[in-house]
Amino acid sequence: MYSEKVMDHFQNPRNMGEVEDPDGVGEVGNPQCGDVMRITIKVDDQERIEDIKFKTLGCGAAIATSSMVTEMAKGKTLGEAEEISKKMVADALGGLPPQKMHCSNLASDGLKKAIEDYRSRHGSS
């Protein structure tokens, strides 16, 4: 029921773990089924995401979307990264089954939260 891309990211997740001394942390929970995702980012002087990692407790789609969103965000400026929508993540994975679309919220929301956290710590807006 999952695309090959989803299975690939589920089985070989990219950027799994925690960034050391993160500049921003985003943790979100999925109220619907109880899954949790945590994103940590390292941001350089140009406000680019230098490093990003995730940890996720959740279904196959939740893990794959987490992995994909880190891949998409890495190297982007904060402004660019904020533009990553749940739909973009799902599309990049070759689509998700309809009942799994909500899982990709987790990924884009986690990223946004990490960026917010960075901004609040660094006083920029």
Partner: peptide, 8 residues
């Protein structure tokens, strides 16, 4: 999976 879990 536990190594990937943010809560375990």
């Amino acid at each position: 999976l536990r190594s990937m879990s943010p809560v375990y």
